[in-house]
């Protein structure tokens, strides 16, 4: 009886296992195999070249440039998302009429499809007719319109801006959930002792949020480091590769240069860097492990 029962259980799990094996495990292993080969994706000739792809990557400039761009992009977007997300979460944690609506509205950018977020911002930041340039000019902050995606420096600013706008609500939702679990008595006690609002934040709120903040930073870091669509759609990695990070480099290697092995090697290296960074991070923040 017991074994028959268990066989049914395994049977029910089979579709899950097949899909995971075929579309997650196999691709990852296959990417590893591809990275050791040199081949043309459209002709079916493959030659084993060992570590040659990695060697070429690590010796060339493009990989290191893309890695640097990726690190700058990740650090900037995660830092801004956490700061903005924390501020909005604290605000929306206050009781006030219409709070439910305000919370739903604050979530909007996160649920909008990426393509829509991109087209919205291309329109807002349009050189000639964009509302942002108009407002900046009307306020006297700029003389000539800003070419948002035209110069290397501004292109990075723009992609960071759009990514922060789209993804900070994740931080808000996560922090709001944790804020509600902080016992109100602690604030009452602090108020009786005469603690000011900033003091209450520093000595009560922040310690409670410490672990969840560490988790949020880890997750957002992982996701931003590999985020492809927004940058690709906004700048294609340009101008002059100034916004080309590793995912875009991998894509370019495969679909522009037709170097499959090289593309796989970029993806694998990106993954290894991410895994190593996450492992070190988890070592540094032990409690996070329990949270995951």
């Amino acid at each position: 009886m017991g074994t028959r029962e268990n066989r049914l259980g395994l049977l029910l799990l089979t579709p899950t296992l097949i899909l995971m094996a075929g579309f997650v495990v196999f691709p990852v292993l296959y990417a590893g195999w591809l990275s050791l080969n040199q081949s043309d994706p459209f002709r079916q000739v493959t030659t084993f070249v060992g570590m040659a792809n990695f060697q070429r990557l690590l010796q060339g400039e493009e990989f290191w440039d893309s890695l640097r761009v990726g690190l700058v992009f990740t650090a900037a977007t995660v830092a801004l998302q956490v700061v903005v997300g924390m501020a909005v979460a604290l605000l929306l944690h206050q009781p006030f009429r219409g709070r439910g609506v305000a919370r739903a509205l604050a979530l909007f950018p996160f649920i909008v499809p990426t393509i829509v977020a991109v087209l919205i911002w291309r329109w807002l930041l349009n050189d000639s007719y964009g509302i942002v340039n108009y407002l900046l000019k009307a306020l006297g902050l700029i003389q000539a319109p800003i070419i948002w995606f035209g110069t290397p420096g501004m292109a990075m600013v723009s992609v960071v801006l759009v990514n922060v706008w789209q993804f900070f609500p994740f931080v808000v939702v996560t922090l709001l959930a944790r804020l509600t679990t902080i016992p109100e008595e602690q604030y009452e006690a602090a108020r009786i002792d005469g603690a000011s609002a900033p003091q209450q934040f520093w000595f009560i709120t922040l310690p409670h949020l410490k672990t969840i903040l560490a988790v949020v930073i880890l997750l957002r870091g992982i996701w931003m480091f590999q985020k492809f669509e927004v940058i690709y759609l906004l700048t294609r990695g340009g101008p002059l590769r100034s916004t080309q990070h590793l995912p875009i480099l991998a894509y370019t290697e495969l679909f522009v240069n037709f170097r499959m092995g090289q593309a796989a090697a970029v993806a694998v290296l990106g993954f290894l860097i991410l895994a190593a960074a996450s492992a070190v991070y988890l070592k540094m923040h032990r409690p996070v492990e329990a949270e995951l």
């Binding site: 579309f23 990852v28 590999q226 991998a250 993806a267």
Partner: peptide, 14 residues
């Protein structure tokens, strides 16, 4: 947490 691009490249090839 696997990077989508890491899955997308081999999936495309296969």
């Amino acid at each position: 947490m696997f990077p989508p691009i890491l899955l997308a490249i081999p999936l495309f090839v296969v």
